[in-house]
Design a protein around this nucleic acid. Structure first.
Length: 485
RNA sequence: GCGGGAGUAGCUCAGUGGUAGAGCAUCAGCUUCCCAAGCUGAAGGUCGCGGGUUCGAUCCCCGUCUCCCGCUCCA
């Protein structure tokens, strides 16, 4: 088996296959579509559910020290003041008319100050810095104040060198909505799920009788008004995250960080992803709240891109919530008899990106007797349909036997019955949907109570007793190995 | 958001100032029966949406929406 050469076309192929087969389609398509929002079709929703289940099992069920949570999408507005999103997700941006490039007005000035310092102009730098601080605290006047600094200092655009700026405009990356039908209070749709975990630190820990170290896992939607939201489901305005916050004793966070880094990489590989298409990417610049951060990247058709982030978030979030809520967010260790604010190691994976990764990684084409066979080589445990069941012909009660098998196997996993078209055609249909096993009831079945199970990856067939089918499929799923890595 | 390109059947695409086709896919019938065979037929499109020019617009012009490629950030 050799993989047909594919290059830039893979992206387009995945997008059109997604639509044609019902994995992912653009939202509100009949009205012309809604930018950067997508719907999951019949196959897509199964794939998504399976990936969520895999994650939840690996986090919550397979770890004594991790519990689950499902927090509301809407949270008290103060949450976002505490988390820093009100500030950080509110960027003053300015465009260079010459190059069309966009910059953050405040970092533009910061870079300028740094240049002054490197140039030995300490006094000047301090002056501008003072004005910058003033501007940032000017409330509604901030944008004008920033603009004025750029004008007064005649700061040129970094790339073009031009001095031809637009006004400074505010970009709010958080979605706002109203809570209450009349004069509702302004609330936000959460831009990340993590804060739901932090504010519930005690509510999750105490009833579950957990002690440090322990973790809280959550799967849920988050919303961001991305300035540039494109590239299929890679960057959406409404997206789903699978996050786990692991609370540890201060000083131990980097050990846990290393451990979770490795465990998360193994998880992606356990989905059947080609290890050669996965890598770590260390952050060069750390967020103000992190003391270590790494991405797990996948080699998408659009380049190496981040699928998951693992961050050592220090005690920033809990400390901030303690400050803003006035509630104690620390932990008392009854054995060591000491009180401290835990540090947090975060693993945050994009569900939609994981789906996209699976589609890209699984897809291949090969030549079979002069025809092209398109296959989605999903790991059987995440495949939308685990097994398809075919009667060889619509004769001698073969469909009845096939239906019986369907009703038996659908107790365990998603299956699909199909009696239309030739055998070859039915096999190929399932190959493109990523169905790992096809079960065929033939005339011999009437005598020996056995059926043919055809393997998606090798196209080889096994003869299996009907009453052993479920066991056989579970076994093959467990021992599945990716081909052609 | 700015610059460049593009929107015609479920998918990939032809096409013309006089209201549209192909291949694949789908459905029905015949045939075949373990790897996309064949034949016949059917269904499916107000040519992204709105406006303008014109006797007449899918085609020309304007606006708008959406997608793709660049520019910042992230899951």
């Amino acid at each position: 088996m050799s993989r047909a050469p594919m290059s830039d076309d893979l992206f387009d192929t995945i997008v059109s296959l997604s639509k044609q087969r019902g994995f992912i389609v653009q939202s509100s398509e009949i009205y012309g579509g809604l930018s950067a929002t997508y719907d999951y079709g019949p196959l897509g929703v199964e794939l998504k559910r399976n990936v969520k289940d895999e994650w939840w099992q690996s986090m919550v069920y397979q770890n004594d020290d991790i519990v689950g949570l499902d927090a509301a999408i809407m949270m008290h507005p103060k949450t976002w003041d505490a988390s820093g999103h009100t500030e950080a997700f509110n960027d003053p941006l300015i465009d260079d008319k010459a190059s069309g490039n966009r910059y953050r007005a405040d970092t533009l000035i910061e870079d300028y100050i740094r240049d002054l310092r490197e140039d030995g102009q300490e006094e000047r730098a301090a002056e501008v810095h003072e004005r910058l601080v003033e501007a940032l605290n000017a409330g509604e006047e901030m944008n004008d104040a920033l603009h004025q600094i750029i004008m007064d200092e005649e700061i040129p655009a970094p790339e073009s060198g031009a001095f031809d700026w637009t006004e400074v405009r505010q970009f709010n990356l958080m979605f706002e909505t109203q809570m209450g039908p009349v004069d509702g209070q302004k609330v936000f749709l959460r831009p990340e799920t993590a804060q739901g975990i932090f504010v519930n630190f005690h509510n999750a820990r105490e009833p579950a009788r957990q002690h440090i170290p322990f973790g809280v896992a959550q799967i849920g939607k988050a919303f961001r008004n991305e300035i540039v939201a494109r590239q299929f489901v890679f960057r959406m305005r409404e997206f789903e995250q699978m996050e786990m916050q692991y609370f540890v004793k201060p000083g131990e966070e980097l050990d846990w960080y290393e451990q979770w880094k490795e465990r998360r990489m193994k998880w992606h590989q356990s989905l059947g992803i080609d290890p050669a298409s996965l890598r770590f990417h260390e952050h060069e610049q750390l967020s103000h709240y992190a003391n270590a951060a790494v991405d797990i990247q996948f080699d998408f058709p659009i380049g190496w891109k981040e699928v998951e982030g693992i961050h050592s978030r220090t005690d920033y979030d809990l400390k901030r919530h303690e400050e803003y809520s006035g509630k104690k967010m620390s932990y008392y260790d009854p054995w060591a008899e000491e009180r401290y604010t835990p540090y947090v190691v975060e693993t945050s994976v994009g569900l939609d990106r994981t789906i996209f990764m699976l589609l890209c990684d699984a897809y291949y084409e090969e030549e079979v007797k002069g025809d092209t066979r398109s296959v989605l080589q999903f790991h059987p445990k995440v495949a939308p349909v685990r097994a398809a069941i075919f009667p060889l012909m619509d004769k001698e009660g073969l469909p009845d036997i096939a239906r019986d098998i369907e009703n038996d196997l659908n107790q365990h996993f998603n299956v699909l019955y199909d009696e239309r078209g030739s055998m070859g055609k039915r096999y190929r249909r399932q190959d493109e949907a990523g169905t790992p096993f096809c079960i065929t009831v033939d005339f011999d079945t009437l005598d020996d109570q056995q059926v043919t199970v055809r393997d998606r990856d090798t196209m080889e067939q096994d003869r299996v007793a009907i009453d052993q089918l479920a066991t056989y499929i579970f076994d093959r799923t467990k021992n599945w190995e990716r081909r052609d890595t």
